[in-house]
Amino acid sequence: MKNATSKVIRKNKAQILESWMKYQLTDEDLRDDLMNMEELHGQSEQLLDSFLNALESGNMNDINAREFEPIRDTLGEISVMRARRGYSPRETGTFVLSLKQSLFDALEKEFKSQPEILYKEIILVNNLLDSLSIFTFETFIKGREEVILRQTDEINEISTPVIRVWEGILALPIIGTLDSARTQIVMENLLQEIVATGSSIAILDISGVPAVDSLVAQHLIKTVSATRLMGAECIISGIRAEIAQTIVHLGIDLSNIKTKASLASALRLAYDMMGVEVKKMDRRSKISLL
């Protein structure tokens, strides 16, 4: 079953494409710096083709149907790509919405003398393109969310270095909030390093953690327990006065865990536990000996 609109599009495809391109380009905010003309033309033509195919299949309202699959694919591709390149939602939405105007123009020319048909077709096209533009927004936002998720992962990766401070002693400066996803990464990195280096002591420095509530404390306790299960000991350092206060006020029990105020004193304790002594060298006496 072919409907009036699809016939019109088939007949005037070249003009519609041209006027659609014009509408897209007249938008003041078009980012010509981000996009090249050929690409835009290619994308527009591809979309118009698949739109026409979908219309000719007879389905005029359900964009989730199989006939619209190529359109959804094309739109999805374009919006995800635009999200990654940093387009605004408006620019992405305009892409589909400006097609509406060119289609209306073409329909108007064709059915000038038949207002009834014109009205019906315009409503149809209008609804269809609205659904498609909502779909575009959805994918655009999903594309952005993916970018955000990836960045979160990257930040988590970067922000949890494990440093080997001495033979058998690891240090982990934790900077920023410690949530459960982060704890997971800290734990994994720490335990893997313990195995890789055969270290028996790990110092968890929390000077860079802005606040410790009962949840963060629980994460810390979990990390310490896991380290112990592996056969290593864990010292928590960098406990500031206000953190000590909150810990006690919240009634968190850290008595089973070795804690130190500063990384330096934690390191001293670690040396002690390993039987290492650090001494100041008397340089002068050495020189005189020479």
């Binding site: 997971q184 994994e188 313990i194 979990k222 327990s225 299960l229 056969g231």
Partner: peptide, 24 residues
Amino acid sequence: MQPAVAITLVELGLTLQGVHTALN
């Protein structure tokens, strides 16, 4: 004990109190 096993046991709430552990 493998790291993944240690993490899982802690999450499960099992800390093997009274068992000594060593790396190797």
